[in-house]
Simulated assay, not measured.
Amino acid sequence: MATTAELVLDARCATGESPVWSVAEQALYWADIPAGRLYRLNPSTGALKQWQAPQMLACLALNAQGDGLVAGLEDGLYHLQLPPMGDTLSAERLASVAHAAPGMRFNDGRCDRQGRFWAGTMVMDMAAGVPAGALYRHDARDAITGQLQAQLSGLLVPNGLGFSPDGRTLYLSDSHPSSQRIWAFDYDTDTGTPSRQRLFVDMQSLPGRPDGAAVDADGGYWICANDAGLVHRFTPEGRLDRSLAVPVKKPAMCAFGGADLRTLFVTSIRPSGVDLSDQPLAGGVFALQPGVAGLPEPGFQG
């Protein structure tokens, strides 16, 4: 399907990640991970606000109570409150994490359809290739101990988290160059437990590395193809259905939004120390019209 990416904002994010659409606010939130910056944009009015987090800010979810956001930072999961004045976020830690190695932080994350928050961790030095990453789930059980418990381990760069429309399939990718695989799991919606891990897509033979993802209302799995300037859609059976181009090499994550949830917003990375003359909009936020609708993003239930 032919479509043209529209520039939403020339944000110049070092690592623009975790776009989340708020239906109530008709606004898009996203983060610049290394800068620890939170953005909120109302695309219809152009109103933009920014806030500063106390640590690197990796992944976001709306709070179901309408009180700020929940986010994965460097050392745990936090409740972020957005001040009406000023640009400094109020951050209350909900649960800490015991990283398996030095130099780690959270990476990709989102809520399941029941409002549990899932997020993965990674060693920030990707070149080291240390499989110390893990996937964590946070719900009321962890609120008692204040400590996150790993549900999966041995990952390099966990990414591509997504849930099928009925919530019964969990998707997870590993975007490290030595992996580049996407897995599917059966998902128990009552207990929040994944099982029967199987290969969904091996992207070694396809353009780009699997980065952040979104699932549409028909069950299509959209994933950013980092390094290839594409966003791929796979059917629930794992068949490549279409690939849409963005004018940057490193799209990072996508999210459905807009008044009818038929716009696919894409955040991107602006790499440092390289010639960007062929991609001056790197780090920007883009919008695609993919011809399908998304689903409202679940809020965190706590």
Rank of each mutant, 00 (worst) to 15 (best):
L276S: 08
S164C: 05
L156Y: 14
L135C: 10
D186P: 07
V23N: 06
F117Y: 11
Y39H: 10
Y78T: 03
P83T: 01
C224M: 04
I33E: 02
N107C: 06
R196M: 06
D227P: 00
D166R: 02
F265R: 11
D278N: 11
R270S: 02
Y171Q: 14
Q55T: 05
D241I: 01
D174Y: 14
E237K: 05
T15F: 10
V8Y: 08
L206G: 00
T121A: 11
G66E: 06
L73F: 09
R12A: 10
S205E: 13
V201K: 03
Q301Y: 09
M104H: 00
F256M: 03
S18Y: 06
D67K: 13
Y221V: 04
M203I: 10
R40Q: 00
G162A: 15
A255D: 01
L161Y: 11
N107Q: 07
L276V: 11
P194M: 12
G238E: 08
M253N: 07
V246Y: 04
A71C: 04
T45A: 06
S243K: 01
Q52S: 12
Q26Y: 05
Q50C: 12
Q81P: 00
N42A: 14
P34W: 07
A132W: 07
G212C: 12
A134C: 15
S268E: 07
V231A: 01
S178L: 04
Q279S: 09
G86Y: 10
R40A: 00
N107W: 09
D75K: 03
G66L: 06
P54I: 12
G36D: 11
L161E: 08
L288P: 03
C224W: 05
L38D: 01
D32S: 02
M122W: 08
S22V: 04
A245D: 00
A35W: 04
S205A: 13
L60N: 04
G133I: 14
A24T: 08
R239E: 11
Y221R: 07
T121Q: 12
R93E: 08
L7Q: 01
S178E: 09
A282R: 13
G258Q: 01
G68V: 11
S164T: 13
R209H: 14
E297H: 06
Y78L: 02
S90A: 09
G68N: 13
A228D: 02
P280R: 12
A134W: 08
R196A: 14
P290G: 07
C111D: 06
G294L: 11
R141F: 03
H99A: 00
